[in-house]
Simulated scan of single mutants.
Amino acid sequence: MNPVPTESLTTPPDPVRPTGEELDRQRAAIAALGHELRALVDATVRTATPPEVLHRMTDEVRRLTGQLTGRRRARAEIPAVDEFPGGVRMYSPVSGPGSPLAPPMRVTPDGDGVVGHCTLGIAHEGPPGYVHGGMSAMLLDELMGWACYAAGTPAMTVSLRMRYRRPVPLETPLRVHAHVTEAEGRKIFVAGSISAAADPSVTLVTADGVFVTPDPDRARALFPNAP
């Protein structure tokens, strides 16, 4: 039997959390890299370049990946540049400016709820020319969680019921909206919708969600690294 590597038995030291100008610089650098990675992903899913170019690019990407050295964040560890819960999430696959997967969606308060703005590209394609239905669900799930926090009740998704009324077009600015409709103890009911930013009166997708605020003991068990 192969021995277990010593490093797997140790807990990584706590990350040094930047503050002030240092935090701003770190977030700006993360966002800049995320922007370029999203451009690379977009070029990758669009290109019809010959195989020899793809192989050369594969070697180059592998070389660049090798330069991302240093401490690696462990599973369930909150990034040092994040504010959890309810704040900046630099690597969120929906709103994180540092994520190559994210649109990224910009979230702001809006009356009785929150609104998100984003544009989904070819990397998020389902039917040709339109957004993958799972992406619509991911946008709404995240924003509905933001709506819970904005209402003063951070919560986790229990169920999400989607209604796809019309196809969501790619490369089109979108408006995503969510608000809490009712609360029963720790259970919170949330409604959400997606429309084109240019014509918000025409709803493309709607969702109804049930969220639950975990009790303190459960929250500590789920998120042991939370402040």
Score class of each variant (00 low, 15 high):
Ala43Thr: 06
Thr44Val: 06
Thr44Leu: 11
Arg46Lys: 13
Thr47Ser: 13
Thr49Val: 15
Pro50Leu: 05
Glu52Lys: 01
Val53Thr: 15
Leu54Val: 13
His55Lys: 07
Arg56Gly: 15
Met57Lys: 06
Thr58Val: 01
Thr58Met: 06
Thr58Glu: 12
Thr58Tyr: 09
Asp59Tyr: 01
Glu60Pro: 01
Leu64Phe: 10
Leu64His: 13
Gly66Gln: 12
Leu68Arg: 10
Arg72Gln: 14
Arg73Ala: 15
Ala74Cys: 10
Arg75Phe: 09
Ala76Trp: 14
Ala76Cys: 10
Ile78Arg: 15
Pro79Glu: 10
Ala80Met: 13
Val81Glu: 14
Val81His: 08
Asp82Met: 13
Glu83Pro: 03
Phe84Ala: 14
Phe84Thr: 13
Pro85Glu: 12
Pro85Phe: 13
Pro85Ser: 10
Val88Tyr: 14
Val88Ile: 14
Arg89Ser: 15
Tyr91Arg: 07
Ser92Trp: 05
Pro93Glu: 11
Ser95Phe: 00
Gly96Tyr: 08
Gly96Trp: 06
Pro97Tyr: 02
Ser99Asn: 07
Ser99Lys: 07
Leu101His: 04
Pro109Arg: 04
Asp110Arg: 09
Gly111Met: 02
Asp112Pro: 01
Val114Ser: 03
Val114Asp: 00
Gly116Leu: 05
Ala123Arg: 11
Glu125Asn: 01
Gly126Lys: 07
Gly129Arg: 08
Tyr130Cys: 05
Tyr130Val: 00
Val131Lys: 01
His132Ile: 07
Gly133Asp: 06
Met135Ile: 12
Ser136His: 06
Leu139Thr: 09
Leu139Arg: 09
Leu140Thr: 07
Leu140Ile: 11
Glu142Met: 09
Leu143Phe: 11
Leu143Thr: 09
Leu143Tyr: 10
Trp146Pro: 01
Ala147Leu: 05
Tyr149Asn: 07
Tyr149His: 15
Tyr149Met: 06
Ala150Ser: 13
Ala151Met: 01
Thr157Leu: 09
Thr157Pro: 04
Thr157Cys: 10
Val158Tyr: 02
Ser159Phe: 02
Arg163Asp: 11
Tyr164Arg: 03
Arg165Cys: 03
Arg166Gln: 14
Val168Ser: 03
Pro169Gln: 08
Leu170Val: 05
Leu174Ser: 03
Leu174Ala: 02
Glu182Asn: 13
Ala183Arg: 15
Glu184Val: 11
Glu184Gly: 00
